[in-house]
Amino acid sequence: MGSSEVILSVKGLTASINGTPILKGVDLEVKAGEIHAIMGRNGSGKSTLSKVLAGHPAYEVTGGEVLFHGEDLLELEPEERARKGVFLAFQYPLEIPGVSNLDFLRASYNARRKEQGLEEVDAFDFDDVVEEKLDVVKMDAAFLNRSVNEGFSGGEKKRNEILQMALLEPSLGILDETDSGLDIDALRTVSEGVNQVANENNAMVLITHYQRLLDYIKPGFVHVMYDGRIIKTGGKELALELEEKGYDWIDEKLAAGVA
């Protein structure tokens, strides 16, 4: 896959929130067709990285660069990033009372289509589009008429995220702890959904604590994040090693200066 197109290139990225540095020089390159996993302890900066890439206004980028298909991503507003194909599956999807899931999905779908130079889809045609995607996450059509995520269980919210990803067909999907709070059946459904969306033209970045997600979605690359940097990169076996030895193992290696 060496000749595949580079989708995301992060170099020396530093960022802070309320003046506190969180990212301290992240380097990451993601190519088309690849699946990456970023692992690490709470507070290591994994979720911050995903939010910074999506353009969350609370974080300030203090240095480094991020190219998305060769374009400066940091210059773009959050909605522009989304329309160009950056998708963030939220760790805690927000509830939007009074806004129907269907209307929300259509607004989102049309915003992405408009960016791609495609015609917007009216409410009738959209029903067919969304119907087809519901199967990806085995979601009941009844969810479409409820308010966005309102009263959804944890598993339903995560499935709704993957439904959105399936609909928007992003070129970069970032999944922020999508496995957290899921029982084993929901985990399987969600993972299968991700696998259906992943293809040779797009890329996925999974952010997770646990190796169990990687039983279902097989990453080609596993990165370990520690104190705001990616300190170790390997194949799938690295995840297993982490699972077995825990993150203390990294601490010890760092202390010994060999990580």
């Binding site: 990033r81 939007i96 607004a107 915003a111």
Partner: peptide, 29 residues
Amino acid sequence: IGEDQLFYLMQRGISMEDAVSMMISGFCK
């Protein structure tokens, strides 16, 4: 209207203006 709700809608390609009016319309429905 929380910053995070707005960010969520914007992360789905919806402009801030549209996000706010969607939320207001929903509130007033």
